[in-house]
C-alpha cells in the first residue's frame, strides 16, 4: 500500500461548504459531484474565494460579490479551506 502523500493529507483536511462556519471566508479548492458544472457556471470556480453568510437547509454565500442561495446537497460538493486574513 502506498503511503498517503502530503497532497492527500491536505485534501483530507478540507471541509465542504455545507460544514463550513457561517461568517467566514473560504477558498474553493475543488468541486466533486454531479452538480459541478452547474456550480461552476454560477461562479464556484476553484481558486475563488467564498464567504458563507448563512447556513441551514439552503445556505447563502457570496462569491465575487454575488449572493447565491445553494442547497446543502450542492454545498456538500464544494470543498473549501479557510482563508486566513493577515
Amino acid at each position: 500500500m502506498a503511503h498517503p502523500t502530503v497532497q492527500d493529507l491536505e485534501l483530507d483536511s478540507l471541509q465542504s461548504l455545507a460544514q463550513a462556519q457561517v461568517g467566514c471566508d473560504f477558498q474553493i479548492r475543488y468541486l466533486e459531484g454531479p452538480g459541478c458544472d452547474q456550480l461552476r457556471n454560477l461562479g464556484f470556480c476553484e481558486t475563488l474565494q467564498v464567504r458563507k453568510l448563512a447556513g441551514g437547509r439552503n445556505l447563502i454565500c457570496s462569491v465575487c460579490g454575488t449572493r447565491l442561495a445553494v442547497s446543502s446537497d450542492l454545498a456538500d460538493q464544494i470543498k473549501v479551506s479557510p482563508v486566513t486574513h493577515s
Binding site: G35, N58, I60, R67, L68, A69, V70, S71, D73, L74
Partner: peptide, 10 residues
C-alpha cells in the same frame, strides 16, 4: 437527474 436548489439573490 436530481436537481438542486441554486438561486441568485440579486
Amino acid at each position: 437527474i436530481k436537481s438542486h436548489f441554486l438561486l441568485e439573490l440579486p
